[in-house]
């Protein structure tokens, strides 16, 4: 029986080192495995809690996009070379099931439908694509974003797909007919810095809370010097039904930070992982106030996060080549 969550007691319980800086990470739905990706273009499977590592090679470039199937048997990875790879990750010798040349340019995000039947992928080619998890066949593809698509999530019903782009546009698509249902404006996450002639930010991550009917979008704002990593973390909390912005969760004292990923705790606490010149931080927000209710300083700059709600575990991928597992209780 797990102890209840106490975010103020969050602490690191494991740290496992790879050879190169890490980029992304996920925990399998059954909580028995974690995966990370690194700047050597490989994937690393880590057994929880022992930390035994298996390295998977196949991508020709870095991997930012990861998703486990609901039964934890398969893992899908999307690389900057544009390939999707399906991996069988529970065999004694994990192996590549199939590979698809899916996108032109970077794949930025993948998501698997709640019933496990469909994979969605998005990327720099500004296309949304659907794939059969069973066969790997492409089911559909469509455009509609004007700039690179950074994030994708399924609605828990499986009927809608939510995608976010550089400009801060969050599109809600009907999965059945691929029609755009509406757009939620997360434009505070986008900065056009005319002095530096730079466009920066974007919807780096999305997460939906079914019971609260709220959507959160993570990224950055106040990008006064995007080339110099001077920008602050920001999470926007929207009502799902009306698309209205309910809270802008910003932080004080983090001049260099960006929320790489957002997720929910069951009680409606929004969690973001921030990495930047201020370091690596887990930031916790509830709906009572805009600023954070708690922050946990990680030992090194973090680039991604995944929360396993059943075990209160948080995995974080770090620049110092470590995958860290923290727990949110004593």
């Amino acid at each position: 029986m797990n102890l209840p969550i106490d975010i103020t007691k969050t602490h690191v319980v494991h740290q496992w080192k790879h050879d190169r800086p890490l980029i992304a990470c996920r925990i399998s739905p059954d909580g028995q495995q974690a995966v990370s990706t690194s700047e050597d273009s490989s994937l690393q499977l880590w057994r929880i809690p022992g930390g035994e590592k298996t390295v998977l090679k196949g991508h020709e470039s870095w991997v930012h996009a990861l998703c486990y199937s609901p039964d934890s048997q398969q893992l899908v990875s999307g690389g900057c070379e544009g390939s999707l790879m399906w991996w069988a990750v529970r065999a004694d010798a994990p192996s590549l099931l199939r590979k698809s040349d899916a996108h032109s340019g970077w794949i930025r995000g993948v998501a698997i439908s709640p019933d496990g039947s469909t994979l969605a992928s998005v990327g720099n080619d500004m296309l949304v694509k659907l794939w059969s998890m069973a066969s790997g066949e492409k089911i559909a593809e469509w455009g509609g974003h004007e700039r690179h698509i950074y994030s994708v999530e399924f609605h828990p019903s499986g009927n809608q797909l939510i995608t976010g782009d550089l400009l801060g546009k969050v599109h809600v698509w009907n999965v059945a007919d691929r029609k755009l249902e509406r757009t939620i404006e997360a434009t505070p996450l986008y900065t056009e810095n005319k002095g530096q002639q730079a466009e920066y930010g974007g919807v780096r991550s999305l997460a939906y809370h079914a019971e609260r009917k709220e959507l959160i979008a993570g990224g950055t704002h106040k990008a006064t010097n995007p080339f110099g990593a001077v920008h602050e973390p920001l999470i926007l909390r929207f009502g799902w039904d009306d698309g209205v912005l309910r809270k802008s969760h910003a932080c004080e004292g983090i001049p260099g930070g960006l929320v790489w990923r957002v997720q929910w705790l069951k009680d409606g606490t929004a969690v973001g992982v921030s990495g930047g010149s201020t370091g690596g931080l887990l930031l916790f927000f509830n709906d009572s106030q805009e600023k954070e209710i708690h922050r946990f300083k990680l030992p090194s700059l973090a680039r991604d996060m995944d929360i396993h709600l059943e075990s209160n575990m948080v995995a974080t991928a770090h620049f110092d080549s470590h995958l860290r597992i923290s727990v949110m209780n004593v």
Binding site: G105, W106, N124, H148, Q196, Q197, A198, E199, Y200, P226, F227, G228, A229
Partner: peptide, 16 residues
């Protein structure tokens, strides 16, 4: 052509 002074997110900016 500006700007390539990419101390931060070099790859995203170079793609753009």
């Amino acid at each position: 052509h500006s700007n390539y002074d990419t101390h931060n997110e070099n790859f995203n900016f170079h793609i753009e």
